[in-house]
Design a protein around this nucleic acid. Structure first.
Length: 576
RNA sequence: GACAAUGUAGCUCAGCUGGUAGAGCAUCGCCCUUUUAAGGCGGGGGUCCUGGGUUCGAAUCCCAGCAUUGUCACCA
């Protein structure tokens, strides 16, 4: 048995061998048909004890209580946990007690997946339990699970370390049932929105993730390369410009649940890849879109939580329509008492400084207003609130306001102090759009890494004529965070981005072998503390020899002890 | 990117002003036929994140690095 395994892993691998010797396949190929689930039984049996007298159920062993010839285990399936009762003489009616004494008691472990058949009864302790007649190993688990216990709703030894939870989400999902629920809810959010939009007759579409030009948002992209085309491609930061091309093409409503990628900082609200739902509807404007967002999100709350009121951290957020509406200037005036609507750039800079907002010289008027808003208003907007009418400088894809100079027809919904969605009356004037792109190019030349690039094909599409269109982008991860009361985006993504794990040990065994040390001894050398050739050079051969022999004995390895001369040679060769 | 905290057994964590590591659960052996965060007795298990330094001696003190978490900055 190799030494790279912990004691518990070694024991499980030995169990695996013994199972094979007994003629039991620990990974059988054939299906195991079930006819009940844990929750069904727990809910229905007590009121009708004639049911479930021939149940088949499958799941993972989560705990064991063995008392000689009788045992209880807890089995976990997708619906929950149910207790199983194993009695030796029922499992093994004949003389041969191997299936109970050896297989069940010694070769099965917590974490193994089994299928059982039996009948349901209630123990003296009052717990609904399956009395097992037969069991079958469906998959042997070779790693020990974290053991989480619970009594009276108090959880003991909870598996909470975020790093392990995110890196080994499968373990998190096994031992933390509420995590599974979070992702079920996330799926319900998507379903609810999809149903809502399909119900309105809009078309769900798919557009390229790999794009020769990135556009539709202000963000830095991931860059990649296509070999056959020998050209640079970018992972999309948004799909806006593609969906609008489809509106030009004649669809009157298109939407896409889109994975977008932004090469920027990470924190509890930002993951490099995230999901947005973008929707474009022809012949509509942003006023109309506000009503749709309200209706859709209220709908999501109702279908995922059966209530428009959602508890998020310390707040209770009510998604019941209608939501509060402020123009950006009104919001700033409301929270600071200052009317900035008539101010020029200089006055805005002074106001920003007075309000303690960070400013720098390259900020234009739009950026200043946005900063003031972000600093003084956004965190205070807990209940769903629409903020409308943004400065034109910040919104190169939005249509100029029908009456207000210098503004665009744009809104964001702010919930719990954070942006939830962003929408506008889409700019469909190709001449204006070209000018706005060119203004962005200027920003780019001045060093703004997030400025948009000019998309000539998109302009060509607009030149054919796009109907007046309302567009929306709504952050699915943020919505999921709110609906599931999650503190961090990592809690609503199965596999949040992490730095790669570093594993040095396994990769360097070969280096030792290359220097003439047999593989089985190379592991012992490393276990003795010499994990690199560099360090082995400095080893004292007699000490290393002793350590290796000691380890060999300790690990009960079935290999011959090396000679002191062998070890001396290894140390000498390590330096060559 | 800045600051702070954390990194010890499979898991959750102790480990004081430096003296080469402990607990509970898990695991292994024995006992136990309705138990329940089962119980009793006994055993094993550790590169104290990594690399340097100080010291007679480092899990502990210092420096550097890595990873995670939190706050801020950047960013939707």
């Amino acid at each position: 048995m190799s030494i790279e395994f912990s004691e518990q892993e070694q024991i499980r691998r030995q169990s695996l061998e013994e199972l094979y010797k007994l003629g039991i396949n620990p990974y059988p190929a054939e299906l195991f048909e079930i006819n009940a689930t844990a929750t069904e039984i727990l809910e229905d049996f007590p009121s009708n004890t004639h049911m479930f007298q021939d149940v088949k159920i499958a799941g993972r062993i989560m705990s064991r209580r063995i008392m000689g010839a009788a045992s209880f285990i807890e089995l976990q399936d997708i619906t929950g946990r149910i207790q199983l009762y194993f009695k030796r003489d029922d499992i093994c009616p004949g003389e041969d007690k191997t299936m109970y004494n050896t297989v069940f008691k010694h070769l099965l472990d917590i974490g193994d997946i089994i299928g059982v058949s039996g009948f349901v009864f209630i123990t003296q302790m009052g717990e609904t339990t399956i009395h097992v007649r037969e069991f079958k190993l469906l998959s042997k688990s070779l790693r020990p699970l974290p053991i989480v216990k619970e009594k009276d709703a108090v959880v003991y030894d909870a598996f909470t370390d975020p790093e392990q939870r995110y890196r080994q989400r499968y373990v998190d999902l096994i031992v933390n049932p509420e995590v599974r629920k979070t992702f079920v809810k996330r799926a319900a959010i998507l379903n609810s929105m999809r149903q809502f939009l399909n119900g309105k007759g809009y078309l769900e579409v798919e557009t390229p993730v790999l794009q020769p030009l990135y556009g539709g948002a202000a963000a830095r992209p991931f860059k990649t390369h296509h070999n056959a085309l020998n050209s640079t491609l970018y992972l999309r930061i948004a799909n806006e410009l593609y969906l609008k091309r489809l509106i030009v093409g004649g669809y009157d409503g298109v939407f896409e649940f889109a994975k977008d990628f932004r090469n920027e900082g990470m924190d509890r609200f930002h993951n490099p890849e995230f999901t947005q739902m973008e929707l474009y509807v022809a012949y509509k404007d942003y006023e109309w879109m506000m009503n749709l967002v309200e209706e859709m999100v209220e709908n999501v709350a109702l279908s995922t939580n059966k209530n428009t009121k959602i508890t998020v951290g310390e707040n209770t957020i009510d998604f019941k329509r209608p939501w509060k509406r402020f123009t950006m200037y009104e919001a700033i005036e409301h929270y600071t008492g200052i009317d900035i609507s008539k101010m020029d750039e200089k006055q805005l800079t002074e106001t920003a400084k007075k309000l303690g907002v960070n400013v720098d010289d390259c900020m234009g008027k739009g950026k200043l207003i946005d900063e003031i808003f972000g600093e003084t208003c956004e965190p205070k907007l807990i209940q769903p609130t629409f903020i409308t009418d943004y400065p034109v400088e910040m919104s190169p894809l939005a249509k100029k306001h029908r009456t207000k100079e210098g503004l665009v027809e744009r809104f964001e919904a702010i919930v719990n102090g954070k942006e939830l969605c962003n929408a506008f009356s889409e700019l469909n004037d190709p001449i204006d759009q070209r000018n706005r792109f060119e203004a962005q190019l200027e920003l780019g030349k001045r060093g703004d890494e997030e400025s948009m690039v000019l998309d000539e094909d998109f302009l060509r599409a607009l030149e054919f004529g796009m109907p007046p269109t309302a567009g929306l982008g709504i952050g699915i991860d943020r919505l999921a965070m709110i609906m599931t009361n999650s503190h961090s985006i990592q809690d609503v993504l199965f596999f949040p981005q992490m730095k790669p794990e570093i594993k040095s040990l396994a990769s360097s065994v070969d280096d030792f072998v290359a220097k003439g040390i047999p593989a089985e001894y190379a592991q012992l050398v490393m276990k003795s503390g010499f994990t690199t050739l560099e360090s082995l050079k400095t080893a004292t051969p007699s000490k290393l020899f002793n350590d290796i022999c000691g380890l060999r004995k300790k690990m009960k390895l079935d290999i011959k002890a090396p000679s002191i001369d062998d070890v001396t040679t290894w140390v000498a060769n390590a330096g060559k």
